[in-house]
Design a protein around this nucleic acid. Structure first.
Lengths: 200, 200
DNA sequence: CTTTGACTTTTAAAACAAAAAAGTCAGACA
DNA sequence: TGTCTGACTTTTTTGTTTTAAAAGTCAAAG
């Protein structure tokens, strides 16, 4: 074999195209051309386009989880952890927003696995945050009854904010606005309405 | 004139149809038929369809503002005010979700005024909530630095949650889920992470 | 084991025709 | 004069057909 990790090269090329144009607007021929191959070569490593999308998705989500886990682990306070959550989410979501938007949309195929993948990811994400909240409770930083429910509502809300206006134009301002909104919300939640407001 | 307030009757008929099918899927002929009129009669009172939509929108938003104002005024605590906010929002949004979704979407015409109207409404809504928060600060219930920013972020977030999955099927479960989510969020914000959780 | 050329099938896009709805106007009727 | 309708034109939406493109298959070559 010429290349020891041809599969990896294909996945890398696909990942780049998916990030820029989304999986729907990327053809197998384009991916193959990027590698100076014919599309039949791709079929030798992946049975169909769907399996390529799935592989790229798995890879991305796995990287996200690792980054989140690391960020939460080294956060010195729950507040820092929440801010890191927002940061890592946007660091991964922004360059791939087109890709993820298509995964969630009612696109033709896929979507069987996509739903399941994203759901499983949401679960792992929730467990991580729940764990960090529990740590905050143990350390006396927080007084919370139900860290699980709290983690769930925080993540659901951040997702809702991130979903707004997921239309075509990749407006950079929009991303900035959303991230700022998320940071403000997290700050508000951390402080609540009855305490002194946290100072920047 | 046969009817003293023919314009009102037309608006009422339009409002009903818009609520059920949205303004895009409602024809002037249908509205006219409901009143046993020809569509030309409608044109005598309203120059075009857009003006009917605008009139209905204005009416609905005005009713919403009055309901919200009343609810906030008679709320005994800020927490009750926030819950009332969620309640009134959904009480108005649910029956007309199709209508409002179309207003916000990139539909063919309209949308010039629609944006402005919704923006103005968001402003008035924010002022009301801000006032109620300031009242809470004055009464000693809250300690907040910036009630304006807080009102803004709360409303933006509630809107974001209400916008999720605004697709076709008027699934009743979805509305329940969203409203529950909004209540949980408001509770979380009120209490913050550092205090004892509020008991139901 | 990889890769490709030639092929079939499926899916998405473009073009076009048909239907429906919006909007106009002169005039009827009380 | 205020209210409404019939007959009409223009615009928009919808449905159908055609066309192009992409997905997927297979035998065979290096």
């Amino acid at each position: 074999m010429k290349e020891p990790v041809q599969k990896e090269r294909i996945l890398e090329a696909a990942r780049k195209r998916f990030a820029h144009f989304g999986s729907a607007k990327t053809t197998l021929t384009e991916i193959a051309d990027d590698l100076s191959l014919s599309k039949q070569a791709l079929h030798h490593y992946f049975p169909d386009k769907q399996s390529i999308i799935r592989a790229v998705t798995t890879q991305l989500l796995e990287q996200y989880m690792e980054a989140l886990e690391a960020a939460l682990a080294q956060s010195s306070s729950v507040f820092a952890a929440l801010m890191a959550l927002v940061d890592v989410r946007n660091r991964f979501g922004r360059p791939n927003h087109l890709f993820f938007a298509q995964l969630e949309s009612d696109g033709q195929w896929f979507n069987r696995d996509a739903r399941a993948m994203l759901l499983g990811m949401a679960r792992r994400e929730r467990r991580l945050l729940e764990g960090r909240l529990a740590q905050g409770i143990a350390s006396g930083e927080l007084r919370l009854e139900d860290p699980r429910a709290t983690a769930r509502i925080v993540l659901e809300t951040l997702t809702a904010i991130g979903r707004t206006a997921r239309n075509c134009p990749p407006d950079e301002t929009l991303f900035e606005t959303r991230e700022r909104q998320q940071r403000e919300l997290v700050t508000l939640i951390y402080n609540g309405l009855g305490k002194e407001t946290w100072k920047h």
